[in-house]
Each structure stands twice: as C-alpha cells, then as structure tokens.
C-alpha cells in the first residue's frame, strides 16, 4: 500500500510567507508537494469560512503563514488572524480536528529555510496522524 499523502491547504501572506516559499524555491530547498498554496494579501484576510470549507472538503491540514508580529503590512492583520485561529481551534477540537491539523506560523520573506522546516514538520506530523476524520465524507452529509 502506498504511503498516505496528506493534503495541506496553505494560506500564505503575499508579503512574507509566500515570498519565503518563492525564496525556498530559488534557493533549491525542496519542500513536500503536500502543501497546496493559496496566496492571500495578508493572514488577516483568511476568513474562518476558508478554513472550515477546506476541512469540510477533506483537507487533512490547514496552514496559515503570516508576517511576524510587528511586520504585518496592514499593521495588525496577523494579530487578528491569531485570535481567529484560537477561536476556530476551540470549535473544531470538539469534533476531532485538533490543533495538530490547524497551524498558524510566522514566516518572514527571508526565512526560506523556516518555510521548508515548517512544511516538512507539518507533513510528517499529518502522515503520523493519518487522514482527516472528514475524509469519509462520502457517507456523511456536510
């Protein structure tokens, strides 16, 4: 049987984490293809709906990448993102999607290697955890 390959939906801020992913690429640092990147203008624009929809559609993990506190181009979008992540985590936990599957990380534009580390770490963690409990959606009305 082939190894389980988790699907990770990644919302990356254009100004930092997305650029870091670009940098990782140009620096020939390879990171797992499990990370499916969606570029957003700021981590603060990741509506909880995007996260819920990703999980309901079978994502095994969701990763939000934003600028370090103090560095957000819209001053505090990342701080709003952090409160929302805490909120949504409290909700999803009860039904079996714990914080191991839902990550927020600060990754600056220059931190290509950190991007690689986080992507490696999250992919490994999810391989260990196995598929999301929402994978069996076929029998379940969402």
């Amino acid at each position: 049987m082939s190894e389980f390959e988790p699907k990770i939906v990644a919302f990356f801020c254009n100004w930092c984490t997305f650029t870091a992913a670009d940098l990782a690429g140009t620096s020939r640092l390879s990171y797992p293809p499990n990370i499916k990147i969606i570029r957003v203008m700021c981590s603060g624009m990741v509506d909880p709906k995007y996260v819920l929809k990703a999980f309901l559609n079978g994502a095994d993990g969701v990763l939000i990448g934003g600028c370090w506190p103090g560095d957000c181009h819209y001053i505090n979008g990342n701080l709003k993102a952090r409160r929302r992540v805490a909120l949504v985590t409290e909700l999803l936990k009860q039904y079996g999607i714990g914080e191991e599957r839902f990550w927020l990380r600060w990754i600056a534009a220059s931190e290509g290697n950190m991007l690689k580390e986080v992507a490696d770490e999250m992919t490994a963690k999810l391989k260990q955890l196995g598929p999301s409990p929402l994978q069996n959606k076929g029998q379940m009305a969402v």
């Binding site: 506190p69 505090n76 701080l79 709003k80 952090r82 990550w103 927020l104 990380r105």
Partner: peptide, 19 residues
C-alpha cells in the same frame, strides 16, 4: 468583544514561536 481587539504579546501558544 474578543474579535474587536488584539495585542501583539498575547496567545503566543497559537504559533509557539518566539523571536
């Protein structure tokens, strides 16, 4: 209301990262 405000030094456990 919690979603109406935010601080830079709170909820560090969410990312677990310190600079």
């Amino acid at each position: 209301q919690p979603m109406a405000g935010f601080k830079s030094d709170e909820l560090v456990e969410v990312t677990g990262q310190v600079k």
